[in-house]
Design a protein around this nucleic acid. Sequence first.
DNA 1: AACCATGGCAACCGCGAGAGC
DNA 2: CGCTCTCGCGGTTGCCATGGT
Length: 270
Amino acid sequence: MLSYTNSSKGDAEQLRRGTWSAEEDSLLIHYIARHGEGHWNLLAKRAGLRRTGKSCRLRWLNYLKPDVKHGNLTPQEECLILQLHSKWGNRWSKIAKYLPGRTDNEIKNYWRTRVHKHARHLKIDANSTPFQYVIRCCNWMPRLLPKMESLNQTSQHDQELMTMEQVPVQEQISGSTDMIMSTISQVAEYQTSPFSIISNNDDYTLAKYCYHDDNIDKNGCYYNLASTSAFEDFPYLDGDCHKPDYNCVNDGFADGLWSMGELWQLRDLH
DNA sequence: AACCATGGCAACCGCGAGAGC
DNA sequence: CGCTCTCGCGGTTGCCATGGT
């Protein structure tokens, strides 16, 4: 689909909009190869492109530039995005600097389509502290790390970034326990859990839960719960179920109950 | 097979910062 | 100091493919 900007001038000066053609891509690539980037409005005219400079810049930076990576994000890239977003929020360009070959637009799209979807399912604001907690400690991050290990793809650079960004669990949750517990209750409710809803308004702390488990790394980061679970959408549990006799975390059962297994442990510890 | 809903993603838009004159 | 231009950023839109009914 192609459209043109409204203009009182003749057709010859109308600017194209919409999807770029192979011919336009070629013009842009060859022009930049000869003359370099920058001065995009001038570039657009001289390259013979009936596009705004802005459009040319975007096309080049997000798609045509040789070092732009195409294809799915790797687990370590996903992990980094989650880490960095929890630190900086929607600072996409800043986050993109830590992912060579990935553009801010791609990261933004990833966040909005995948992570926001997850938040919608949980009925939590994706930018809220509770959701960040759920992402980092309850499900998403715990699932990515084993994937990264199994793929053995983590470069030293990635590892350094991970170490740099990791925040001890106790630090992550300090001062917001009530909010986090409230969120977990909401999650449990939303999933129509076969388990009892965790309601908690006392001074129960997540640290107790976290440090009960052995899976805490040297930085105090808790990261291995439900590591066997598939990284899929939330399961919407229903029906008359009972507390299983086996380990929710290590058994295949956890594949479908990954978040609930964690919540169940939390409840039992209380 | 046809229709509809949804997700993924490329592209656009508005705004603000900074440089140059 | 103010104007213009360029660039970059974050938010939003709209197209297209896919899956479900």
